[in-house]
């Protein structure tokens, strides 16, 4: 698979480490969330057959985290964003 890195261009997926569903970015607030909410965040997955937003880490490159939109049935990649941009669009890290 080729991942089109927003900064570095087309890169082989072998340069990356896969983490999982992009919802792992949305960790609940540890001071307010209950045990059920953390259980849902840490252990439960949507695991869709089809379009999947997921986190890839460019370990053998610029060490950036990417949010890759990929089809889990065809492995086709349709969108690649910097995880930083995705988080900031949600109002994080201001």
């Amino acid at each position: 698979m080729i991942i089109h890195h927003p900064i570095l261009g087309p890169r082989d997926a072998q340069e990356f480490v896969y983490l999982g569903d992009a919802s792992l970015m949305d960790r609940p607030d540890g001071m307010t969330a209950g045990i059920e909410e953390f259980h849902e965040y840490l252990y439960q997955r949507g695991n869709p057959a089809g379009e999947h937003r997921e986190l890839w880490y460019h370990e053998q490159g610029d060490r950036s985290w990417l949010v890759v939109t990929r089809n889990t049935v065809t492995h086709e990649i349709t969108k690649v964003e910097l995880a930083r941009d995705v988080a900031r669009a949600k109002g994080r890290s201001k």
Binding site: G20, Y43, Q44, R45, N47, A49, T72
Partner: peptide, 15 residues
């Protein structure tokens, strides 16, 4: 995950 979604369930599973 696909089949159990019919019962409204999310599973601690990735395919």
């Amino acid at each position: 995950s696909k089949v159990m979604a019919h019962a409204g369930m999310r599973l601690p599973i990735e395919s």
